[in-house]
C-alpha cells in the first residue's frame, strides 16, 4: 500500500518541510561539520527543528540523513556511524511525529561520479544506498532521494531502496537552467529523467535545490508538460546565499518565496508536494501552509 499516495489523493497538495542544514547553521553548526553528525551529537537540536516544521504545518518531514550513506560518510571516516546516525535521526523524528503526518527518510547522493568524471561503479552505489535504506526503512513512511544530478546514480539509489522495501519513493533531481532548457550538470534532460523515473516505478517525480523559487516556476511548468502520470514534488532554494555580518544568509523572504510557490500551485493540475530546500525555514513553511489552506477554503 502506498501511504504517500493515499495522503496525496486525500489532500491533493501535501506540504513538505524546509531546509535542515540552514537551520543547523543558525544553531551553531560549524564550517565543515557534517550536519548528519548532529543526529547523535546534538539530537535535541535536530528534534527541535523537526518539531518546528510539523508545528509550521508540514504534512511530511524528512530525516536529517542527506549524507548518511556509507560512501559519503567514508569520505569523513564516519562510515562506522552509518547505523547510529540513520537510526537516531529516524527515531528522533518518529518520537515527535504527530498523528496523521508522515515521516520521510532522506537520502542524498554519494558524492562520487561515474566515468569519465569519476570512478564510481553502479553495484558499489546500489550497495551503499541499500545499507542506508535498510537502517531507515523500519521507521519511515516514504523515501526522498534528493539532489541527484546523475540519473544513473538516482537509478542506483532506487534499486538500493527497492532491494529493502516497497515503501514509496519521491525521486528528486537537481537542475541548472541553460539557454536550451533545464539540465543536470551531467547533461541529463528533463524528458530523459522523467522517462527513466517513470519506468523505475517510483511514486513521485521531484526536483529540488540549486535553483531558487522563481526559476522553479518555469521548471515546474516544463516538468508538468512532460510528466502527466505521476504526482510531483518541488523543493526550491530561497534564492542564493549572501554574506551578512560574517554569516551566510538567504535573503529571500517567506513572502517572496510563497509568491513563487503560489504561482506553481496555479500551474498545478495534479497531485503535488511542495516544500523548500536551502535557506528555507519554518517561517517559509508556515506561510505556505496558509496559502494552501486559503486555496482549499477559497
Amino acid at each position: 500500500m502506498d501511504v504517500l499516495l493515499d495522503h496525496l489523493n486525500k489532500k491533493g497538495v501535501l506540504l513538505f518541510d524546509g531546509s535542515m542544514g540552514t537551520q543547523l547553521m543558525l544553531r551553531g553548526l560549524n564550517q565543515g561539520e557534517i550536519p548528519d553528525i548532529w543526529n547523535i551529537k546534538k539530537p535535541n537540536v535536530v528534534q527541535e527543528i523537526f518539531k518546528n516544521y510539523f508545528a509550521a504545518g508540514s504534512d511530511l518531514v524528512q530525516t536529517a540523513t542527506f549524507r548518511a550513506n556509507p560512501i559519503a560518510l567514508k569520505s569523513k571516516n564516519y562510515e562506522n556511524l552509518i547505523e547510529k546516525i540513520n537510526k537516531s535521526s529516524a527515531s528522533l523524528l518518529k518520537g515527535i511525529c504527530p498523528e496523521g503526518k508522515l515521516i520521510v527518510g532522506d537520502i542524498g547522493p554519494s558524492g562520487i561520479f561515474f566515468p569519465p568524471v569519476g570512478e564510481a561503479n553502479f553495484d558499489e552505489l546500489v550497495s551503499s544506498f541499500k545499507q542506508q535504506a535498510k537502517v531507515l526503512a523500519p521507521y519511515i513512511d516514504a523515501f526522498h532521494l534528493e539532489t541527484f544530478s546523475d540519473i544513473q546514480e538516482m537509478k542506483a539509489a532506487i534499486e538500493g531502496v527497492k532491494k529493502i522495501t516497497n515503501k514509496p519513493i519521491i525521486a528528486s533531481m537537481t537542475y541548472n537552467k541553460k539557454s536550451r532548457g533545464f539540465f543536470t550538470i551531467m547533461g541529463d534532460t528533463l524528458k530523459n529523467n522523467i522517462t527513466e523515473l517513470t519506468e523505475a516505478k517510483i511514486s513521485v517525480i521531484g526536483a529540488n535545490c540549486t535553483l531558487g523559487s522563481t526559476d522553479f516556476i518555469e521548471l515546474f511548468k516544463d516538468m508538468r508538460t512532460i510528466n502527466d502520470t505521476l504526482p510531483m514534488s518541488v523543493k526550491p532554494n530561497a534564492g542564493q546565499p549572501i554574506l551578512q555580518n560574517g554569516k551566510l544568509v538567504y535573503k529571500q523572504s517567506p513572502e517572496e518565496f510563497s509568491k513563487d510557490m503560489n504561482a506553481i500551485l496555479n500551474l498545478n493540475n495534479g497531485l503535488l508536494i511542495i516544500g523548500g530546500c536551502c535557506g528555507t525555514s519554518p517561517d517559509h513553511i508556515k506561510l505556505l501552509r496558509q496559502i494552501i489552506n486559503q486555496r482549499i477554503s477559497g
Binding site: F113, P116, V117, K178, S179, R180, F183, T184, I185, M186, G187
Partner: peptide
Amino acid sequence: DEGEFFLPELMRGAQ
C-alpha cells in the same frame, strides 16, 4: 558555454 556539452563531455575532452 553554449550549453551543448556537460560534465562528462568536458571531462572526457580534457582527458
